[in-house]
Design a protein around this nucleic acid. Sequence first.
DNA 1: AAATTTACTAAACTGTGTTCAGTAAATAAT
DNA 2: ATTATTTACTGAACACAGTTTAGTAAATTT
Lengths: 203, 203
Amino acid sequence: MGSAERKEREKHETREMILAAAKKLFLNEGFEHVTMRRIATEIEYSPAAVYLYFKDKDAIYCALQEQGFKELYRCQSVLTAIKRPDEKLRACGRIYLDFAMENQELYDLMFIMRAPLMAFESPEDWNLGRDTYEVLQNIINECIEQGYLKAPNAQIACFSLWALLHGVVSIFIRDRAPMIAKEHRAQVINGILDFTMTEFLDK
Amino acid sequence: MGSAERKEREKHETREMILAAAKKLFLNEGFEHVTMRRIATEIEYSPAAVYLYFKDKDAIYCALQEQGFKELYRCQSVLTAIKRPDEKLRACGRIYLDFAMENQELYDLMFIMRAPLMAFESPEDWNLGRDTYEVLQNIINECIEQGYLKAPNAQIACFSLWALLHGVVSIFIRDRAPMIAKEHRAQVINGILDFTMTEFLDK
DNA sequence: AAATTTACTAAACTGTGTTCAGTAAATAAT
DNA sequence: ATTATTTACTGAACACAGTTTAGTAAATTT
């Protein structure tokens, strides 16, 4: 009877194996190579076996999306060490941009792809996304309270800043900026961060 | 021998029919319902016939993308009537946001979808996109010259503003903003435009 | 030792994009 | 006017997706 928990552990391990295989295909070989069959052969199972662990392909996407949000949240944790709200805001932007550009496929999955409908379906599943957003929201609030930023509406200011950050990286990730050579991207991103911060922050 | 030009005209008309059918499916029934077979049945041809007019599905996407850019450029043409650069900049943002939210599927095709690789492949095909971008670029330049905006780098300022606009609409279009109720979207967009303009523009 | 549950697979179904061999009509050549 | 050729198309297939179903062999429980 004690084998029940071992069973559960094994089940969990296989699940993780599938997720790892899917993530590997995603990151190393790009989005279009993630097929249920490829995932299955990667872990040396039959395609049908994957469906014993995930309802469908979308469920795998959602699980990876969740991992992505956890990772982004982890990246944001260093912000607590920064005291001045304006520095904190800049660092927050920096972290977001770096995360996106260093994990482009993952970012795409989290914020651009149509597939994982986690976003609107069940609000409780969005909690992880909400957490990462609240980090920015709180910093903006601090900035306003301490006079680093005067905005009539904190919500609007927050959303604007997020939109700017998301806009920059999603334009690059989906290759919509042919006017900017690939080797200048990092430079442009730095310039945008500088420009935005000096433009947004007063005092 | 005079029938040659009639032939060419007929060929062109069929091409347009295919494009119209594809666009209709796109706009009325959403992205996922655009299949080569659906397009074919829509114009009462066999699926194979479509391939006599377009190399592949991607070629259809590219043609629609082109239409989209032409339409956006047309929308921007009213800007010439506005004299003050700051008003012009705000109107430019307004036009972009409205175009995106009123033609979401088309905007998606133009700026978000992976499929049409027009972007990087052949630079001369990007000309239409470049034209619409230059409209913004020129306004920004005017703003800087006439002291409405002080930015160390016009290119950076321009890209930042575009990124902000694109960020806002792409977050909505791809349903990544569950924190903002659908009925508040228009309001939020107005708020962002206001906030951004007062924040960016001096004097 | 028998019954049942578990973890899996082989093979198929549906629906994609796409190609290819063929055909019937329109056109051109003789 | 008759033949040859080009044009505009179609039917059927191919390869490859996601997914389902029926079955099986091993592990577990009784």
